Amino acid sequence: MPDTAEPTRLLREAGLRVTRPRLEVLAAVHAHPHADTGTLLRAVRDALPSVSHQAVYDSLHTLTGAGLVRAIQPAGSATRYEGRVGDNHHHVVCRGCGAVADVDCAVGDTPCLHPSADHGFVLDEAEVVYWGRCPQCAAAPA
């Protein structure tokens, strides 16, 4: 988040009340891309020590519903959150340590992949998760 006015503007434009927990959660998501709820709770508590786990969880749910935060859930992993929204990007996940990184859409507009059959659905997103080992895990002895 570039400045303190930006999160307030984003919340208001989304039709949400501006609350301290929402501001802190939004800031934490941008400061810690692909973080799980526990990591975000610790980050929010650094700025707002009395915040409850439920307030952080509710804020994440509200911000995700408003499209200000994106939730991703790689198979076998806790839900993670990121502030990169509004584009159709994908993720690469390390099988060793669970690190996650963004991967831009390879070709085309949203969705960047076109299925052989859409079964009547109006498609607006394609999700691809690449799996492998990050450089640190790949370099570690087996």
Rank of each mutant, 00 (worst) to 15 (best):
H91C: 07
A75K: 02
A140I: 04
T19P: 11
L11A: 08
V100R: 01
L16C: 10
R42H: 14
D36H: 09
A35M: 06
E24G: 00
E6M: 13
D36L: 03
A101Y: 05
V93T: 10
G86L: 06
A78L: 13
R45G: 01
P135N: 06
A99R: 14
V56G: 08
F121R: 13
C105R: 12
V100F: 09
D104P: 09
H119G: 07
A140K: 14
S50E: 13
S116G: 12
N88Q: 14
V69M: 04
A47S: 12
R70V: 01
H32R: 14
G120S: 11
M1K: 03
R70H: 08
R133K: 07
L123H: 04
T79H: 02
P7V: 04
P74K: 00
L26T: 03
R84L: 15
G86Y: 07
Q136F: 10
P115N: 14
L48V: 00
G65L: 07
Q73C: 10
G38I: 01
P74N: 05
V103K: 00
G96Y: 09
S116K: 12
R20A: 14
D46K: 06
V51M: 04
L63P: 00
A140N: 10
T8L: 04
D58H: 10
L23G: 04
E125R: 15
A43P: 06
W131T: 01
G15Y: 11
T79G: 06
V44I: 03
P2Y: 05
C137V: 10
A71V: 15
G65S: 05
M1A: 11
L60I: 11
A55P: 00
L11S: 05
G132K: 03
T37W: 03
F121L: 12
A31S: 11
G86T: 12
S77H: 14
A78T: 11
I72N: 08
A47E: 09
E127D: 14
H61D: 13
A126M: 05
V51F: 03
R45Y: 02
G83P: 05
R84D: 15
V51N: 02
P74T: 00
G83K: 04
R12T: 15
G132Y: 03
V18A: 12
R70A: 14
E24N: 12
A99W: 12
V85F: 02
G76S: 04
A5N: 10
V25R: 02
L123P: 00
Y57G: 01
A101E: 14
V25N: 01
V129F: 05
L63S: 05
A78M: 06
E6T: 15
S52V: 03
Q136E: 13
T110W: 09
H89K: 02
A71S: 13
P135E: 11
A99I: 06
L16H: 04
M1Y: 03
P49F: 08
P21W: 09
A106E: 13
V103G: 00
A14I: 10
V29S: 04
L113V: 13
V128Q: 05
P33W: 00
P33F: 00
G120I: 04
L10C: 03
S50Y: 06
P2A: 05
V25S: 00
S50F: 04
T4S: 11
N88A: 15
Q73M: 09
A126V: 13
A47W: 03
N88L: 03
S50P: 02
D104M: 07
E13K: 12
